[in-house]
Amino acid sequence: MQSNKLRMAIRATAAVAVFGMAGQAGAVSFDAGGWDTSVYGYARLNASYDIDENVSTSTRSMDYSAINVGSAEDNEPTGYFGADAVQSRIGIKTTSPEGVVFNVEGDFRGGNLRLRHAYGSYNGVLAGQTWSNYTSFVGSTSTLDFDSLPGLAGYQSRVAQLRYTTGPLSIAAEQPQNSLAGGTAKDSMPALTARLEDKAGGLSYSAAVLAQQVGYDTGTADDSAFGYAAFVAGKIALSDMITLQGTLSYTDGASNYLYRSGAESAYVDGNGDVKTISGYGGSIGAGFNLGSGRSINIGYGMVEVDLDDAVADSVGAITGADTESVSAVMANYQWTPVKNVMMGVEYKYGMREVQNGDDGDASSLAFAAQYNF
């Protein structure tokens, strides 16, 4: 019985962790000619009050690159309010009588309809755009901030890909996410990913690896290097009320997959050679189910990249003013007064440090109200 309770608790917490991302809990389902179809989505208000700096962007997520550092934060005006509903989304998912799944989903981030998912899948083969295979939500702590904490597992976004899944193992060839300081990145091959995700009793876990090529070609000069990345993530239910979760990541030549680092994957040095940038990150958090649709979540996340060699070698493409580390702590209270309605408040404190040692911090309050259908 206790084992069943633990499994139910971890499933419930995982569902809460992606509450703001999945949005299918209240889907409107119907059958049309043997096609099992659901229309789903939500309307959501996000509001923020930035206490000491203007650091919130669309969906009122914290923008770490906007945190002033050094003397720049000394005379920063205080108190900024903002609100929007662009996180709202709509999607349709249908399964044919033969078992072929189709899914198309969009939201309004950026002010216009934005494609999030567009894929088909059959017998374990998926083709189209959806969450990168180099992503996991197993170790994520539930946040109201749409972009969540730094250091989560993998890319945490959607890419075009061809994927095959068998049991807990998924492998994929994906559109690479390259960036190159001092040159224009050239994609010469897909990013190759493999992920293992499973559960055992009260423990859910995930691990993944990624390999990609980053380089440039001007017609008269060219060079490239291989980058790689890896993460592990886990969640454990300590009781029916409490879960702990966390992630660890390492990248070298794949900083775009180091979540919320904002760093380049590589740079071109003074000799025209491509040199990779390494980094690491992680997150840890806890969820407390208070019953009656109420929960408290606390979390910490961070990422750091090594820019010392890049500043010395990149001929000014990367400087001492570039971000070397970001981190954040947060706490929120979420309440589901009735089915398909969630409201919550959240406090977040973010920090940024640049390569020359200057640092700064900012704090923000957020409110969210979400209505699923």
Rank of each mutant, 00 (worst) to 15 (best):
M1A: 11
N4Q: 12
I10N: 13
T13R: 12
V18C: 07
A27W: 08
A27K: 15
S29Q: 14
F30L: 10
G34C: 07
A43V: 09
R44H: 04
A47E: 00
Y49H: 13
E53N: 10
T59K: 02
S61D: 05
D63M: 05
A66D: 03
A66N: 08
I67H: 07
V69E: 04
A72Y: 09
A72D: 15
E73Q: 15
T78H: 15
T78I: 12
F81Y: 14
V86Q: 12
Q87I: 10
R89L: 11
T94M: 08
E98C: 08
G111Q: 12
N112E: 15
R114P: 04
S121V: 02
V125N: 05
L126H: 00
Y134L: 09
V138N: 06
T143Q: 13
F146V: 09
D147K: 05
S148H: 04
S148M: 08
Y155D: 03
Y155A: 05
S157V: 00
S157G: 05
R158S: 03
S170W: 00
E174F: 04
S179H: 02
A181H: 03
T184D: 14
T193A: 12
A194W: 01
R195M: 13
R195D: 11
R195Y: 15
E197K: 14
D198L: 05
A207M: 14
A207W: 09
V209F: 12
L210A: 10
A211C: 06
Y216C: 09
T218G: 08
F226I: 13
A229I: 01
G234S: 11
K235C: 06
L238C: 11
L238S: 09
S239W: 15
S239F: 13
D240T: 08
T247N: 12
Y250F: 04
D252L: 00
Y259S: 07
G262T: 01
D269M: 02
G270M: 10
T276E: 01
S283E: 08
R294L: 09
S295M: 10
I296E: 06
I296Y: 12
N297E: 13
Y300T: 11
M302S: 10
E304A: 12
E304G: 11
V305A: 01
D308G: 07
D308P: 00
T319L: 05
D322Y: 08
D322H: 12
T336H: 09
P337S: 10
V338C: 11
V341I: 11
V341W: 05
M343I: 07
R352C: 00
R352H: 03
D359S: 13
A368G: 14
A369M: 12
Q370V: 07
